[in-house]
C-alpha cells in the first residue's frame, strides 16, 4: 500500500548551533502518513515538536534524512504545478517556487498564535480570499461568496466579514485561520498547538469543528500539542517526543492506555483529571 502514502519521513533531523556547540533539536524521526489520517505529536516544551513540524512543512531544511511528499499530478493554476516529478518526491529537491505553491494550495499551516498566521491589517474576508487571489481568482463577487460560505462553515458570524481580525476574539481568530487555510482544499494541514491559549469551552468547540472538517474534507493532519486530551480526541496515531527523539509511536488509544516507554508513562500519569 506504499503507493497511497501522503507523507513519508525518513530519519529526519535538524541541528542548531547553541553557542559554539551544535545541538540536535530533533533527530532520527521516521513515520508515514496516509491521506485522511491525523497524527498527533506530543511531548514537553523543548522536545523538538515544533522544529519537526517546520521540517515537515519545509519551513526549515533537514540537516539529515528527508521528507517525501506525494505530489498531486495536477495541471492548472500554478505555473510550477504542471511540470516536474509527481508521486513520492523528496521535498529538498523541489524548487522554492514549487514549495511555495504547495504551501498555499495543497498544505495548510495553522499557527499557535493566530496573529502569526493571519494578516492583521486586512479584514476577515480578505484573509480568507488571499489564497484564492494568489491562485489567480479575480472576481470580487465570487471571492466574497466563497469567504461568506467559509465563515459559515467555521461558525463565524458572517456580519463580521469586513472587520479586522484584531477585533475578533481568540477563538474566532483561530477559526478564521483555519478557514483561510482550508479554502483551497488542501490535503495536508499542519497545526502547531491550535488550541493552546483558548479557554476550555472554546477549545471544545474548536476541537469539535476540527474533527468535523477533517472528516468531511478527508484531511490529513499533523497536530503538535502538549495536551493529551486533544490528541485523544483528534488523532488516529501519535508520536511521543523527548529531547528531540521519538520515544514511542502507535495508535492513540494504545499509546495512552498502555504506554510502554517510561517517559510516556510519566506523561500519561501527570495528566490532571478534575
Amino acid at each position: 500500500m506504499s503507493s497511497d502514502l501522503l507523507l513519508s519521513v525518513r530519519n529526519a533531523g535538524k541541528q542548531f548551533m547553541q553557542g559554539q556547540r551544535p545541538r540536535w533539536a530533533c533527530r532520527g524521526v521516521s513515520f508515514d502518513l496516509y491521506p485522511g489520517e491525523v497524527l498527533a505529536v506530543v511531548g514537553e516544551s523543548g522536545s523538538g515538536k515544533s522544529t519537526l513540524l517546520r521540517l515537515l512543512a519545509s519551513r526549515l531544511a533537514c540537516d539529515e534524512g528527508s521528507v517525501f511528499y506525494d505530489l498531486r499530478e495536477e495541471a492548472g493554476n500554478g505555473v510550477a504545478a504542471s511540470r516536474g516529478a509527481s508521486g513520492l518526491v523528496d521535498l529538498a529537491g523541489l524548487s522554492e517556487a514549487r514549495l511555495r505553491w504547495l504551501a498555499r494550495t495543497d498544505w495548510g499551516f495553522v499557527e499557535q498564535h493566530a496573529r502569526d498566521g493571519l494578516r492583521m491589517n486586512v479584514s476577515g474576508g480578505a484573509n480568507i480570499g488571499e489564497r484564492m487571489m494568489a491562485l489567480g481568482a479575480r472576481h470580487y463577487g465570487k471571492l466574497r461568496g466563497e469567504a461568506l460560505s467559509w465563515m459559515e462553515r467555521v461558525e463565524l458570524d458572517v456580519d463580521r466579514i469586513d472587520d479586522l481580525p484584531g477585533t475578533y476574539s481568540g477563538g474566532m481568530q483561530q477559526r478564521l485561520q483555519i478557514a483561510r487555510n482550508l479554502v483551497t482544499h488542501p490535503r495536508l494541514v499542519f497545526m502547531d498547538e491550535p488550541t493552546t491559549g483558548l479557554d476550555v469551552s472554546v477549545q471544545a468547540r474548536l476541537l469539535d469543528l476540527l474533527r468535523e472538517l477533517v472528516d468531511q474534507l478527508h484531511l490529513a493532519a499533523v497536530i503538535v500539542t502538549h495536551d493529551l486530551a486533544v490528541a485523544r480526541l483528534l488523532a488516529h496515531r501519535m508520536l511521543v517526543m523527548k529531547d528531540g527523539c521519538v520515544v514511542e509511536q502507535g495508535l492513540t488509544d494504545r499509546v495512552l492506555d498502555d504506554p510502554q516507554h517510561p517517559y510516556t508513562q510519566l506523561l500519561v500519569s501527570s495528566v490532571l483529571t478534575p
Binding site: R119, S123, A126, R131, M133, A134, Y140
Partner: peptide, 9 residues
C-alpha cells in the same frame, strides 16, 4: 495575489 488583497479590502 497580495496586491489584489489590498484592492479587495
Amino acid at each position: 495575489g497580495l496586491m489584489n488583497v489590498k484592492l479587495y479590502e
